[in-house]
Design a protein around this nucleic acid. Structure first.
Lengths: 104, 104
DNA sequence: TAAATTAGCAACCATAAAGTTGCATAATAT
DNA sequence: ATATTATGCAACTTTATGGTTGCTAATTTA
């Protein structure tokens, strides 16, 4: 369907999803879905959908233990975003000069 | 409506928009809309919409001269994305150690 | 065993997003 | 003056997205 970088960027483009991701990153311990969703105003199903999107992007991993599903964040896919940005860093300040040197 | 970082991330989350943006960055000279759209398979109007989205995110600036509207890329807003990423860089490799030092 | 908890699935809704076409208008070129 | 070109605007279609609710199934707890 979509390529990796697109999935990652779409995943973090939504503010609620960024919040969920952030919460999982700073918690640093795997949380069951209900416990994640309790931190947000939207329904559990809403959160589950967001978690699925984050999982598809590789930003969240989910493991089942008993009836619970534990979610934890994985920041590694963001390296892709960082790599994508790298190219444009060249142009951040003195655009023309840096472009010139790039074209050489 | 949406906050800055969300507008920027949404703008670059679309692959066609990333392509348009990239084309403008490497061209380094302002291009009239028709000339931009000629490089893509979608209609001129489609491209115009994407340019509007990019402009709203600050990634493209458009100036009118005569009947033409010249578009050029501005990479500066991507600094916001870079700043957003900064926080998560801490966790990229040795997650637990770095989280520990962050929490101190 | 019965009650409570965790979660998935499916259907649904409203809105946004990506793209199209047709038409009007202003600026340029012939 | 006419024809051409560059563009905006508006309406429309299709599909994606963010969110909801109701129901069912499985695992725990009492």
């Amino acid at each position: 369907m979509q390529d990796k970088i697109t999935r990652i960027l779409k995943a973090v483009a939504d503010p609620t999803r960024r919040e969920i991701f952030h919460a999982l990153v700073v918690t640093a311990t795997a949380l069951p879905i209900t416990q994640v969703s309790s931190q947000f105003d939207i329904s559990r199903q809403g959160v589950t959908k967001h978690l699925k999107t984050l999982e598809d992007a590789g930003l969240v991993t989910i493991s089942t233990r008993g009836r619970e599903r534990f979610c934890s964040a994985d920041t590694k896919p963001l390296i892709e975003v960082s790599k994508w940005l790298k190219f444009y860093e060249k142009f951040w300040d003195d655009s023309l000069d840096n472009l010139a040197s790039y074209l050489d």
